[in-house]
Structure formats: C-alpha cells, structure tokens
Design a protein around this nucleic acid. Structure first.
Length: 304
DNA sequence: AGCGGTCAAGTTGAT
DNA sequence: ATCAACTTGACCGCT
C-alpha cells in the first residue's frame, strides 16, 4: 500500500537534468540566451520522460521534479515566458507527453519549491517572487499531471501567529491551478505538525508530514498522532517524507540526510495506510530499492 | 580534457 | 556583523 517516491535525481542511472547560470546567460545576446534556454528545456523534458519511464519500469510509484526543470524560469533578468522561447510548442508537447505517461501508468509527480519560496515573508517583494515561482511550477504541473506543489511555512520573524496569518493571506494570491496543488510541510526548525494542522484544516491545504523533521523539531505529538492529523488534511492519497540522519540521531547535525533509509526510522503506523512516501536519501534510486526490499521483507504484500 | 570555484532567490542561528 | 547551512550536482571558465 506504500508508494515510494524518488526525489529529483539518480545516483547510478544516467538520467541527467541540465541547467545554466544567470551569469553565463548575461554574457550572451538575448537570442543566443533563449536558444540555450530552449535547448535546456527540451533536454529536461526528454530527461523527465526517461525518469518517469525508469520509475514505472522499476516500480517506483512517484517522482519529485526538480525546481530548475525550466532553468531560471522566474529569474528577474533572465526569466522568460515559455511562449517566447524558440520551439515553445515542442517543449510543451514533450512535457505533456510526460503527463500522458503519468496518467496512463498511474504515477504520481510533485514539486518542492526550495527555501527561497517564502509565502509568509513580511516583505512584499519576497512574497511576489514566491508566488511567481509557485505559478511557474503550477504551469508545468498541469502539463505533467503533478498534483502537489509542496512548500514550507517560512520564517517565524519573532511572531509565529502573525507569520502564519500572513501565510494564510498569501494563499489567496495563488491561481486555482497553483492553490489546488499547494501543500505545507512541517520543517526541521520552526513549524511543527501541531502548529500547521489548524491552518491546513481551515484552508483545506494538505499537510505533508515529514517524520524526520518532526523528530528534529518535536511538538509533543506522537508520530501516530501526527500521522493521523496529517492524513485528515488530505482529500486524496497523502504524501509524506522519510529520511535518516547522516550521523545518527546522537550526531552533531541530525537534520542532515543519510545515503539510505534506516528501516528503524520508518514509522510502522504508516504501513496500514495507502500513502506516497518520498524517500529523501542521497543514494536516490538505490535507497528507494533498499527501503522497498526491507519493507517487503517486513510485510510482504504492503508495498509497491 | 580535467579541475574546482561558483551558482538567483530567504531565513536562521552560530561565530 | 558576517556567513554557512539548508539540497546537490552541474556548469563554466580556466589551465
């Protein structure tokens, strides 16, 4: 019943996504720059199709798409609209082909905008840039059939209640296609499941439960309680995160991720549910395979 | 061809 | 006040 997900990259499989830098583009004529960007987008769409094909063939049920799938899409100077790139139709067509595969094979895809996306910032410019980034990912999500754009709640700014109120207000700024995909995840330092759950329930925003973060930043809830709380916020298959600490729970930085998942870190209460669990481990597909094997040995019919 | 410094963005907390 | 850590590899300019 557990669908395991791979995050963005491969350790051994030669499937590579490409990107560029704003500095490099700024040294080129705009025509050459957009040509390069278009080539990268075409390449990445093809690579995504390969990634999804690989996942399906190897029984990996979910794939997280890297934020730079369209490189520098919302950069203030080098950003672009897809329709302004050469081969725009071909780029979209290739991503839509990914979407066909996702739907026909029952795969799940998601996005996880990174730490620069902060919807609860007191700075309007930060919120505006964050909304733009989420909207870009929502456009690609629509092409590829991704149902999740997962973000953290943001900073505390010395007043979490006010910060969460700003977050709630910012949700209103999103288009329907972005809003309907947006999810919130508990983080490893600031916002716990207990703090996010009320907002999630009130705003019908699914809560992505990261049990590693919960262990780093606890709130008094047991893992069973947090699991149930998070599950109740989903109107579809829940998406959770798993990872193991690089140097053990007693190490200096338990929030850092290990190459593989220690089976002891996988909450047993998750096994009873139909869930997607993204495997956040540096050995990538190898870690997914290892966890799948170990879960299968534990309970032979409960994984796929 | 190979090497290594650098890469758009925000926030926090260690120094 | 400054800066590394988040996640991480890959780009790109230099030899």
């Amino acid at each position: 019943m557990i669908r395991l997900g791979l995050c963005c990259l491969f350790r051994e499989q030669p499937i590579k996504f490409r990107t560029t830098t704003a500095a490099a583009l700024s040294r080129m004529e705009r025509s050459a720059a957009v040509r390069k960007l278009a080539d990268l987008c075409l390449h990445n769409a093809e690579a995504l199709l390969q990634a999804l094909t690989y996942c399906h063939a190897h029984d990996i049920g979910a794939f997280r798409v890297m934020s730079q799938i369209l490189p520098l899409k919302t950069h203030p100077q080098q950003g672009y609209r897809i329709e302004d790139l050469p081969d725009a139709q071909e780029i979209v067509a290739r991503f839509q082909a990914c979407g066909e595969l996702v739907r026909s094979r029952g795969l799940r895809t998601s996005f996880h905008p990174d730490q620069f996306v902060v919807l609860n910032s007191p700075r309007d410019s930060v919120v505006a840039a964050s909304v733009a980034e989420i909207e870009y990912q929502a456009e690609v999500a629509e092409w590829i059939g991704a149902d999740v754009i997962n973000i953290h709640a943001g900073g505390a700014y010395g007043d979490k209640a006010a910060a969460l109120a700003r977050l709630e207000a910012s949700l209103e700024m999103l288009s329907p296609r972005a809003r309907s995909r947006l999810t919130l995840e508990n983080d490893d330092a600031i916002y716990t499941p207990a703090e996010l759950a009320p907002l999630c329930q009130r705003t019908a925003t699914p809560l992505v439960y990261d049990v590693h973060h919960h262990r780093c930043c606890p709130d008094g809830l047991t893992e069973i309680e947090a699991t149930d709380l998070a599950m109740a916020t989903w109107r579809r298959e829940p998406l959770f995160h798993i990872s193991s600490p690089l140097e053990g729970w007693q190490g200096p930085k338990p929030e850092r991720h290990h190459d593989f998942i220690d089976l002891r870190d996988f909450p047993r209460c998750w096994l009873a549910h139909q869930l997607t669990v993204d495997v956040e481990a540096k050995a990538k597909e190898l870690a997914v395979f290892q966890l799948k094997r170990e879960l299968a040995a534990l309970a032979p019919t409960t994984t796929r």
